[in-house]
């Protein structure tokens, strides 16, 4: 596989990879770096990639693993600091929207949840993958994915209700 073929294959997936990295690493810089690193990892293994029937799922798996490794490693200690920059930066973009604060709240709630749930929410509710595909990416069983998904959906709503007492009318 030459470079151009590889890039044309990876192009449709790159945004999804970046968004998953962003969900886990929170800082934009870290997410960009992570995505770039994963491109390299994939490219260096491109001889083997032919064997992987589904490049997209494989790319997502590598992204997920890479980000989880990053979170475990020492670099993690820097993330909190960058994280604050990210927050203020985000606000300014979101400010153009009416629902800004509320969207930021969802983001905040999600940040506080376990990595596993973040990944599942990202893959299902944002990227809209089928359960089979999520199972392939995360190497989890479908039932476990459904349980995790149910938890994260309920949790986000619960937290939102706590803050706003919507629905109490």
């Amino acid at each position: 596989m030459n470079q151009n073929t590889f890039i044309s294959l990876i192009n449709p997936v790159k945004d999804k990879m970046y968004r998953l990295a962003l969900r886990l690493l929170i800082s934009k810089e870290s997410a960009e770096d992570a995505t770039q690193e994963v491109f390299l990892k994939l490219w260096n293994r491109n001889e083997k990639i032919k064997d992987y029937a589904n490049l997209e799922a494989f790319a997502m798996t590598v992204t997920r693993n890479y980000c989880l490794d990053q979170l475990k490693s020492k670099q993690n200690s820097n993330l909190k600091m960058i994280h604050n920059n990210y927050e203020s930066h985000e606000r300014s973009i979101h400010d153009q929207l009416e629902t800004t604060d509320e969207l930021a709240q969802v983001s905040k709630i999600l940040e506080g949840l376990p990595e596993q749930q973040k990944i599942i929410f990202q893959l299902r509710d944002i990227e809209q993958y089928e359960f089979e595909e999520i199972a392939e990416i995360t190497k989890m069983k479908e039932t476990a994915i459904r349980v995790s998904l149910s938890r994260v959906r309920k949790k986000i709503r619960e937290e939102l209700l706590k803050k706003h007492s919507y629905g109490i009318k």
């Binding site: 990876i10 790159k14 960009e32 995505t35 390299l40 509320e102 969207l103 509710d125 944002i126």
Partner: peptide, 20 residues
């Protein structure tokens, strides 16, 4: 809010170009 958040997040794109 949850659905709006998800839709909004899906609009993010990777800012760079893949470099090998």
């Amino acid at each position: 809010m949850i659905f709006a958040f998800a839709a909004n997040e899906k609009n993010r794109t990777y800012p760079g170009k893949p470099q090998l």
